[in-house]
């Protein structure tokens, strides 16, 4: 058994040389040899001639031992050897994978310089780009310049995450199997990265001259309008105000992106497809964010009167009537008080 294995696996004979005590152990050597087959640490090439001699002796001994031993015992030992080898292989692979991961992470941190050009901005540039994101430029015949920068978009996405958290918390949104934080981050980054990739794909199909970086930057700065609108409307709850802001601010930021895209696309149909998709997605996203996580008017009334009402779940509501009624009643009471004086 052991001899055949040894013949099959020439590497294992190397390791035999290291066991100085093998001849001393005599008849039991076969067992020990099998168990130590995995050990590669003990190989020494100091006395090759001696080793050959020893191997011959051992072969004789092990043949005798194999003859005397029962078959199932040998099988058991063989299994053990295979298992040991398998375990070593698995451990090796795990170790290799871990090493790869660690070195990858380290390389990523070491290669942070690669990302540095995208963060090469001045505060004034960021401010100007934020303002420009709300000013559509009417240049269609000539490709507009789009700055490929990621600091502004990244910070805007984080700001949007914070605003969404605020909206979720004040609206009493309950999320099963997840945290508010995770949902907010997932929504914002999902929108930014997902829609950017989608638009990039469409732009590729429509033959638009734009890179992924430019789309990321464009869409990221487009989120500035969203941040402004959501911050205002999560705080001041009037639906007419939201619709006005939605149309004006959201519309302006969308127009800006659309104009930039149009200027880099050729042909009517590609332009229409690209811009319709982008504007629809962008405007609907703002609508979704507002209505999914906004505090309803009844909530304020309850907090003013008494906080003992459970937080509202998301239900179908008809807010405009309530808000109109609220305004009407306040106006009436004010006029009544004025008249009484």
């Amino acid at each position: 058994m052991s001899t055949t294995e040894r013949n099959k696996n020439p590497n294992s004979t190397e390791s035999w040389g290291g066991f100085e005590d093998n001849p001393i152990q005599g008849g039991g050597s076969a067992v020990i040899d099998m168990e130590n087959m995995d050990d590669t640490s003990g190989s020494s090439f100091e006395d090759m001639g001696d080793m050959h001699q020893r191997i011959k002796e051992e072969e004789e001994v092990s043949e005798e031992a194999a003859a005397t031993e029962e078959g199932d015992d040998g099988e058991f030992l063989g299994m053990k050897g295979v298992k040991g080898q398998l375990g070593r292989q698995v451990a090796d692979e795990v170790w290799q994978a871990g090493k790869r991961q660690a070195s990858k992470a380290f390389n990523l941190y070491g290669n942070i310089d690669i990302l540095r050009p995208y963060f090469d901005v001045e505060p004034i540039q960021v401010r100007n780009r934020l303002l420009e994101s709300l000013i559509p430029v009417r240049i269609i015949n000539f490709p507009q310049k789009i700055a490929g920068e990621l600091y502004g978009p990244l910070m805007l996405v984080f700001t949007l995450v914070a605003i969404l958290l605020h909206g979720m918390k004040t609206s009493g949104t309950v999320i099963r199997e997840g945290t508010l934080m995770g949902t907010a981050i997932g929504t914002c980054f999902g929108y930014w990265l997902g829609i950017s990739s989608f638009i990039y794909f469409l732009a590729y199909l429509c033959n638009a001259q734009i890179t992924m970086l430019q789309i990321l930057s464009l869409l990221g700065y487009g989120l500035f309008g969203h941040c402004v609108v959501l911050f205002v409307t999560y705080t001041v709850h009037f639906h007419s105000l939201f619709y006005i802001l939605w149309l004006v601010v959201g519309g302006l930021s969308t127009l800006r992106m659309v104009a930039a895209l149009i200027s880099r696309t050729v042909g009517h149909t590609p332009r229409l497809i690209l811009c319709a998709t982008l504007s629809a997605l962008h405007m609907l996203f703002l609508l979704y964010l507002h209505f999914a996580y906004h505090k309803i008017v009844e909530g304020i009334l309850d907090t003013l009167e008494g906080p003992n009402v459970p937080p509202f779940q998301r239900i179908a509501r008809d807010i405009p009537e309530v808000s109109v009624a609220l305004v009407n009643t306040t106006v009436k009471t004010i006029s009544a008080t004025l008249q009484s004086y």
């Binding site: 958290l165 605020h166 009493g172 705080t235 003992n308």
Partner: peptide
């Protein structure tokens, strides 16, 4: 964000804090 979490923290069931930032 952290300070906002602290302000809106309320130990009871109520949602009585209308934080405007």
């Amino acid at each position: 964000v952290i300070s906002w979490m602290i302000v809106t923290f309320s130990p009871s069931h109520s949602d009585g804090t209308t934080d405007t930032g």
